[in-house]
Amino acid sequence: MFVSAAALAAPVDDLMVAVKRDSDVTARELIRRGVDVNALDQNGRTALTVAIQEQSAKVLPVLLNARGINLSTPNKFGESPLMMAIIGNQTELAKQLIARGAATNKGGWSPLHYAATRGNVEIMRLLLARDAYIDAKAPNLATPLMMAAQYGSEDAVRFLLSRQADPWDRDTLGHTPLEYAKRGGKEDSIALIAAAQRKRRDPGKVRPLAPLSPASAAELRGEPIPENPESIPMIYPPGQEPAAPAPLP
């Protein structure tokens, strides 16, 4: 028997309505009847995504306990349910999602970026405990430390630095976390990041080692040092060249 696409979509639409109305009884009955809890609505959202957006407190436990639910399906903007819970300051829900195995890493903007933006150290700690990448790169190469520096809190910056976040990472415009802290006008974070940069050499300014002289190379290899090794020309900064020796009388 032919079943139209509209008829197939109807149960999913009914579930979305139940979610928006926060009707746990209806949502539970629809799931019992086999509605796909991972289906997308016309805006590319799952029922879980809609429930988080609407803060449907009674429906959320029903969805979280539904068999086969995908906790990490992103919306059309690439935001996972965990990211949406974090940015919406729904900390307890975010903790539940992490505990239930929601993805803590993803390409582009990540949950750690969002937690850093909110300055939520508690969630950042949980994410890192689940192997979230501390220097995750957004599409513009911004890192969680940059987000914490501009939008988050001093505690968030201090926490990330204590976990070895790179203070010298650069975005696509070449800005480091220090520029982000200055942009946010956060004096305490500016001081923390500046201190971290002083302790850690800027990898962009590290010069490669000069090649070994033939004599040094032979010594390292345990070989006889050449009697007449080639001289290594000395290169001086402009204006600091040694004066030429005076001519012999």
Rank of each mutant, 00 (worst) to 15 (best):
E179Y: 06
P61L: 05
S216V: 13
P11A: 09
I134C: 09
D135Q: 03
D171F: 02
Q240A: 00
L30D: 05
S4F: 03
S231K: 11
D188E: 09
D13N: 13
N89W: 12
A7K: 10
K20S: 07
I52Y: 02
F77H: 14
I190Q: 08
V19C: 12
H175D: 12
S56H: 04
D202E: 05
A191G: 03
L64A: 06
P208E: 03
A148G: 00
Q164Y: 15
P144E: 07
S213D: 01
L161N: 03
K76Y: 11
T117I: 08
E92N: 15
Q96E: 11
R221P: 13
A218T: 10
N105H: 12
R33W: 07
E219V: 15
L82I: 13
E154S: 02
L126M: 13
V157W: 03
E223M: 09
A7T: 11
P249L: 08
T91M: 05
G174V: 01
D24H: 10
G184A: 02
A246G: 06
L192E: 07
G107I: 02
L160G: 02
Q164K: 13
A18K: 07
I235M: 07
L63D: 14
G204R: 08
D41E: 06
D166N: 15
L178V: 11
V50A: 09
K205T: 15
A129K: 05
A51R: 03
T104E: 10
P81K: 06
